[in-house]
Design a protein around this nucleic acid. Structure first.
Length: 484
RNA sequence: GGGCGCGUAGCUCAACUGGCAGAGCAACUGACUCUUAAUCAGUAGGUUGUAGGUUCGAUUCCUACCGCGCUCACCA
């Protein structure tokens, strides 16, 4: 029998031992008085004397370490990636609770009633007076000071990563702060959050290959959206002058450290402004998001110092520095030579019309459009433009895209007649923008791979896991032992 | 999809040129009422990713496959 099976069976037996002591191995509601982060925030700077009145606390968390010394011992509990020590002495808890303490495993979840004090070495700790059992671990936790380093397991079993690596919790906490910062800022500018279809009969708003799915009752093929853009602009036509959406896009393309097939995009549209207005708003949004997420507009990313309080602006032609290049050649030169060098946050504006089917022409040179993208750390993190609101020009752009499609461009835009119809009712001059939340999170959490900022990145199927069989066989093993 | 690299105990890693698969942590037994990588004494734990091949002998060399990473292509 392998070690793991042995351990599994051993712990399953322990479930019965815990029951025999009068505890529930998979416990119930536990009304805690504080979270561990709350206790640390409130009492970290309190001296032993200031804790002399024995502040009473009731906490619930997972056991990360245990140090037993016969008739007393310590353990560290962890909650939301933060740790607090608990001191258990035989004469301070009931006899059964101490027996329970002696059979606890790393990874079990317990509730502790007790009071705060400082140990002889000065560590803030809970002096346990009551132990409640809340949940049993059956598997083995990763090793305690190296944590879990195997990236494949970190991505496949994110729950284990979150237990073993507190930094991982922090990344997703920061991600949440970024999103809530952007929401708060947009709300304060009068933007309304909306939700538009993820399943679309006609896909558009970006150049990408879509995922296809099928609705049975309607017997109709649908595309998972590659962008919400065309629906959001229908709302602008309808008089919702400031709208935004934070949601998933799906693109059926390559996977890399910067690409996941589903990714989160913020898109926002503001009537009666243009791309210069969007530039100013973007700079404000990004600076404040950096401050809200990290405490500063200046962040470290892979050895570089990025300053979001001072975003440079230059045209694509200026960035490339070759006035003879136009159209696709200009974009190609830019992507090849310039994009990877844009480490500091930079706005690149005025794009060729060929790569911008939904943007308004530049008034001085109609072969360019009033569009910009935001780059940082060599990645594109945002894309914005003055929206094309002339339905006949939009029709010509769609027809140009259809020709590109016929010529073999799999990512060229589809014709969207309802979008043209909406625009024919009159769309106000509008500025619109998309910001890639995953990439922004990478930069603000100093993460090298997009998989580090997506809780469950797409991976190939893993082999047989076998846990159901193990649970089943151990269960029958326990039963046969009991009947002996 | 192409190229390169990695896969050894639950975790983190060793194993020289092809020669008896090992350590720390975790686990188990025992001691210990302020430890914190607790300590001390002892015990157990392996289909070396999978399947073939070469060889007296393969963790090691070869082939294919599976998974992951990096990178190029593509893309945001």
């Amino acid at each position: 029998m392998s070690l793991e099976d042995d351990l599994f069976q051993q712990r399953l037996r322990r479930v019965h031992e815990i029951e025999a002591l009068g505890f529930k191995p998979y416990g119930q509601r536990f009304d805690f008085s504080h979270t561990i982060p709350q206790i640390l925030a409130a009492y970290t700077d309190k001296t032993a004397e200031q804790l002399a009145d024995k502040p009473q606390v009731r906490i619930a968390a997972r056991i990360l370490t245990i140090r037993r010394m016969g008739k007393a011992g310590f353990m560290h509990l962890q909650q939301s990636g933060e740790r607090l020590q608990v001191y258990v002495r035989k004469d301070a808890v009931s006899e059964n609770e101490y027996k329970l303490y002696e059979m606890l495993d790393l990874g079990d979840i317990v509730g502790i009633d007790g009071y705060l004090f400082r140990t002889r070495t000065g560590e803030l700790s809970v002096h346990a007076e009551k132990i409640t059992f809340l949940s049993k671990i059956l598997l083995n936790l990763p090793e305690k000071w190296h944590g879990l380093e195997d990236v494949e397991i970190r991505y496949r079993q994110r729950y284990l990563d979150l237990i073993a690596n507190p930094e991982s919790q922090k990344i997703f906490l920061t991600r949440a702060k970024i999103i809530s910062s952007l929401r708060r800022q947009l709300e304060s500018h009068g933007f309304i959050e909306v939700e538009t279809p993820m399943m679309q009969p006609v896909y558009g708003g970006a150049t990408a290959r879509p995922f296809v799915t099928h609705h049975n009752t309607l017997d109709m093929d649908l595309y998972l959206r590659i962008a919400p853009e065309l629906y959001l602009k229908r709302l602008i036509v309808g008089g919702m002058d400031r709208v935004y959406e934070i949601n998933r896009n799906f693109r059926n393309e390559g996977i890399s450290t910067q690409h996941n097939p589903e990714f989160t995009m913020l898109e926002f549209y503001q009537a009666y402004t243009d791309y210069h207005g969007m530039m100013d708003l973007s700079c404000e949004l990004l600076r404040q998001a950096a401050v809200d997420a990290t405490g500063s507009p200046i962040v470290e990313f892979q050895g570089e110092t990025l300053d979001f309080s001072n975003i440079r602006r230059m045209t694509m032609r200026e960035a490339v520095g070759d006035p003879s290049l136009r159209g696709h050649d200009l974009v190609h030169a830019f992507e090849q030579r310039i994009e990877p060098t844009l480490i500091q946050p930079t706005i690149i504006y005025e794009y060729p019309v060929e790569v911008s089917p939904l943007s308004k022409n530049n008034a001085d040179d109609p072969s360019f459009v009033d569009r910009f993208e935001i780059y940082a750390a060599g990645m594109e993190i945002g894309n914005a433009y003055t929206e094309l609101n002339d339905p006949n020009e939009q029709r010509r752009r769609f027809e140009l895209q259809l020709k590109m499609k016929e010529a073999g461009d799999e990512e060229a835009h589809q014709m969207d007649e309802d979008y043209l119809r909406a625009m024919s009712y009159g769309m106000p001059p509008t500025g619109g923008e998309g910001i890639g939340i995953d990439r922004l999170t990478m930069i603000l959490t100093n993460s090298k791979s997009i998989r580090d900022v997506i809780l469950f990145p797409l991976l190939r199927l893993e082999g047989e896991i076998g846990i159901a069989a193990k649970l089943r066989s151990e269960e029958s093993g326990v039963r046969s032992q009991e009947s002996e």
